[in-house]
Computed example of a mutant assay.
Amino acid sequence: MSLDRSVLAFAGIMVLLSVALTAWVSPLFVWLTVFVGLNMLQSVFTGFCPAAIVFKKLGVKPGCAF
């Protein structure tokens, strides 16, 4: 899996997890959803994505996944 797809998959998992935690544990977990959304939005404008940095250090290669 490419770096871009890994970051998108991680963001999707975090959003789904935070929605589930909000529904079943505490409404305060909605702030995790807000944090993930704001992080995605700022990365669009700044190009800085902490998840991409972590995935690169874990060995995920950028580029085409084919």
Rank of each mutant, 00 (worst) to 15 (best):
M1K: 13
M1T: 11
M1H: 13
S2M: 04
S2R: 09
S2I: 02
L3K: 10
L3Q: 14
D4A: 14
D4L: 12
R5V: 05
R5E: 14
R5F: 02
R5G: 09
S6R: 08
V7C: 09
V7D: 11
V7M: 09
V7N: 04
V7L: 11
L8Q: 15
F10S: 13
A11M: 08
G12I: 05
G12D: 14
I13D: 09
I13R: 12
V15T: 10
V15Q: 06
V15W: 01
V15S: 06
L16Q: 07
L16P: 00
L16A: 08
L16E: 09
L17C: 03
S18Q: 06
S18D: 08
S18E: 07
S18F: 03
V19S: 01
V19F: 05
A20K: 08
A20C: 09
L21S: 02
L21G: 06
L21T: 08
L21N: 06
T22C: 03
T22H: 04
T22E: 09
T22Y: 01
A23M: 10
A23Q: 07
W24G: 03
W24Y: 03
V25L: 12
V25H: 00
V25D: 05
V25Q: 06
S26G: 01
S26H: 12
P27C: 00
P27N: 02
P27K: 05
L28K: 12
L28W: 10
L28V: 10
L28R: 10
F29W: 13
F29E: 03
V30K: 02
V30Q: 01
V30H: 00
V30T: 08
V30M: 07
W31K: 11
W31F: 11
L32W: 05
L32D: 12
L32G: 15
L32R: 07
T33F: 08
V34E: 08
V34H: 02
V34Q: 09
G37M: 03
G37F: 01
G37L: 11
G37T: 07
L38W: 10
N39W: 04
M40W: 07
L41T: 05
L41C: 02
L41M: 12
L41I: 06
Q42A: 04
S43A: 15
V44I: 15
V44L: 15
V44G: 03
F45P: 00
F45C: 06
T46P: 03
T46N: 02
T46I: 02
G47M: 10
G47N: 06
G47D: 08
G47E: 05
F48T: 00
F48W: 10
C49A: 07
C49V: 04
C49K: 05
C49E: 12
P50K: 05
P50E: 09
P50Q: 08
A51I: 15
A52R: 14
A52G: 00
A52I: 06
I53K: 14
I53T: 14
V54I: 14
V54H: 10
V54K: 11
F55D: 10
F55Q: 15
F55R: 13
K56M: 13
K56C: 07
K56Q: 15
K56Y: 01
L58G: 06
L58F: 09
L58T: 02
G59Y: 09
G59V: 10
V60S: 12
V60R: 11
K61W: 01
K61Q: 15
K61R: 15
P62G: 11
P62M: 04
G63I: 04
G63A: 11
G63M: 06
G63C: 08
G63E: 12
G63Y: 01
A65Q: 12
